[in-house]
Design a binder for these strands. Structure first.
Lengths: 192, 192
DNA sequence: GATTGATCTTGACAAATGTCAAGAAATTTT
DNA sequence: AAAATTTCTTGACATTTGTCAAGATCAATC
C-alpha cells in the first residue's frame, strides 16, 4: 500500500530512500469496507489521511439529519479535518468509505516532523495547501454564482471520474441542490 | 505603515530586528482611494497583499456584468490571487478598495525567500494557509446548507465588524443572494 | 444646503428550486 | 433467482428566491 503513496510523492518531489523509509516507518494503514467510518463526528481526529485506493467522502449531518458533503476523496487525495487536527476539537464531520478503500494515515506529530526535517516535503505541503485553497475558491464561486443546471455542468466537467463513481444524490448534496432537481436538470440537459 | 505589519507579525511569531529590517527592505507600499483598483481582471498579479488600513474586496465579474464577491479583506487580512501568483496567469478577479486603504505588498519571489530562510515565518505561512482553508470550508458549508436568512445570520454573527462597514448589496453578493432578498430577510428578522 | 449618486426598501410577479410521494430501474445481498 | 436495498425519475404542489421597477432614505460632493 505504501508503494502507491511513494509513487504519488515521487511524482511531486525528490526524496532519498532513507526519507521514504522513515515515512514508511511512521505511516499507519487502514482498510475500510464500503460504508465504514474513518471518522465519526464527535471524536478527535489527528491524522492526515491519504487515499491509496477506493473513495471516501467527508460530510456534515445537520440537526434535521440531512447530509452535506464537504469533500470527495478518491485515490491520491488527502482528507481529514483541519479543525479537529489543529485545535484538538471533536470533529463536526463524518468521513466514510463510498467504496472499499485503503488509507494511509500520518499522525499530526509525525507529519509535522517530516515537514520540518525535509524542506522539499515542506514545499510540497505548502503547494498542496495553496492548490487546495484554489479548489475551494472555485467551489465557492460556483456556489454563489451558478444555477443548479450550471453547477451540475461545472461539476461533471471538472470531475468526470468522480461523477461516474458516486450516486447522483451525493453530487446533489455536494452541490447544495436537491437530488430531484439534479435529476431533472440532467434529463433536461441530455435532451438538447 | 510597516509598523502595522510588524505588530501583526509580532503577535504571531518571534523574529529578530534583522529579519524585520530585511522584510521592510523588500516591502512595497501602496495607498488606494475608495473605488481604486489594486488589481484588474486580465492582468497578472504576483504579490501577496496585506491590508494595513482600510478595506478591500476581491470579486469576479461574470458575462452578465454581475459582481460576485469572493473575499472581504479589512485590516490585517491578506489578499491577492493564488491562481495568478502561482501559475503566472492573468487574473479572473478584480480587487478594489471599499474604503481608502493602505496596502503592503510582497513580491512572490521575496515572499518565498523570506519563507525559505526564516523557519518560523514558514510555519506561520503554513498555519495561515490552514486557517484559510478552514474559513473557506465554513463558507462552503453555509453555501450548500443554509437558507438566505440563515446565511445572513451566520454572516453577521461571524463578521459583525465587516457587516457594519459594507453596503448590504455587497454582503448579498458575497453570500450569493439577491440584495432584495437580503433586505427582506433582515427586516423580517428584526421584527421578531 | 442643493445636487448628485448610492443605498435600501417594498410591491407585484416570474422563475427556480424544494418537498412529498409513488413507482420504476438498477444494484447488492442472500 | 429471489428478495432486499438503493438509486433514480416523475408529478403535483409549496416555498423560496430572483427580477424589475419605483420611490424613499441616506451620504458624499460641490
Amino acid at each position: 500500500m505504501f508503494d502507491i503513496f511513494r509513487k504519488y510523492l515521487e511524482d511531486k518531489i525528490t526524496l532519498t530512500d532513507m526519507d521514504y523509509e522513515f515515512i514508511e516507518s511512521v505511516a499507519l494503514f487502514k482498510k475500510l469496507r464500503k460504508r465504514q467510518y474513518l471518522l465519526q463526528a464527535g471524536s478527535v481526529f489527528r491524522f492526515h489521511a491519504f487515499v491509496c485506493k477506493g473513495f471516501l467522502r467527508n460530510y456534515y449531518v445537520d440537526e434535521k439529519g440531512q447530509e452535506h458533503i464537504m469533500q470527495f476523496a478518491p485515490e491520491n487525495y488527502w482528507t481529514g479535518d483541519f479543525g479537529s487536527m489543529n485545535y484538538g476539537l471533536p470533529s463536526k464531520y463524518d468521513i466514510d468509505a463510498v467504496e472499499d478503500s485503503e488509507i494511509l494515515l500520518l499522525q499530526k506529530e509525525d507529519f509535522e516532523m517530516i515537514r520540518k526535517t525535509i524542506p522539499s516535503f515542506n514545499d510540497f505541503v505548502n503547494e498542496t495547501l495553496k492548490k487546495n485553497a484554489l479548489v475551494l475558491q472555485e467551489r465557492i464561486y460556483a456556489n454563489i454564482s451558478l444555477t443548479a443546471k450550471e453547477k451540475y455542468g461545472d461539476f461533471i466537467a471538472k470531475y468526470p471520474t468522480i461523477s461516474n463513481r458516486v450516486p447522483l444524490h451525493m453530487i446533489a448534496s455536494y452541490l447544495g441542490v436537491s437530488a430531484e432537481t439534479l435529476s431533472r436538470v440532467r434529463t433536461q440537459s441530455a435532451k438538447k
